[in-house]
Design a protein around this nucleic acid. Structure first.
Lengths: 123, 123
RNA sequence: CGACACCUGAUGAU
DNA sequence: ATCATCAGGTGTCG
């Protein structure tokens, strides 16, 4: 996860935690990112997890309407999903964006590419 | 690749071919090695490619059963994989063994270590 | 069926 | 130190 505001990289989560699942990690990173922000802040938040992007921008609305149930069973990681969605709703100026996963060793160039992408899309 | 029989090194492929991928090279070397052998010959064949070892001793059986498909798409280098596997099946007394890659400059000592290892494991 | 990510292991090249 | 080429497994959704 990378936090971008005004074209600058604010912070990035790049930690590794073998004690939890990858998807819980992605949601947790997103939650931390959203929590850093005030409710009116304008911010792009990039994640490489399609699961997180789709959950927040498409699926969560339907799940909430439905009593937090999926078509085929229950929603996994529901605690994190609900929390992330709440935080997301409270911050209407946040844009969640997906970006292809970086290669760990090229982190600097990756971050650079991100802020460039940000500037391009915002100008 | 190194061919060992009765504790003696018979031959070794140590060529380099930049026009093909490393993995195709490993398979090709293995095929050449198997082709030198009769169907009943007892032989150790060492390769430094874990890909080749696993393919022949574990994965190919499942792929064949499955119509030569992997879980996620198709099998790469399928031509070489199938050929090598056929040759391997026809030679039940061949043992495919993995050995850590040699340092090119230590080839003699490497071959020596191999035949020593062979003698040890066979006595 | 499709997509994305994460983990592990191995080799090759400069 | 960084590039590419290979595999198997798990977490998740439509």
């Amino acid at each position: 996860m990378v936090y971008v505001m005004d074209g600058r990289i604010l912070a990035s989560d790049h930690g590794e935690d073998p004690a939890t699942t990858n998807n819980r990690m992605e949601f947790t990173a997103m939650i931390h990112g959203l929590e850093m922000l005030g409710p009116a802040e304008e911010m792009d938040v990039y994640t490489d997890s399609q699961l997180v992007v789709n959950t927040l921008t498409q699926w969560a609305a339907g799940w909430k309407r439905n009593g937090w149930k999926r078509r085929d069973g229950e929603v996994k990681n529901l605690d994190l999903v609900r929390l992330a969605y709440e935080l997301f709703l409270e911050r209407p100026n946040v844009r969640i964006r997906w970006i292809k996963a970086h290669d760990g060793s090229l982190w600097n160039e990756y971050a650079d590419a991100l802020s460039t992408a940000y500037l391009r899309s915002e100008v």
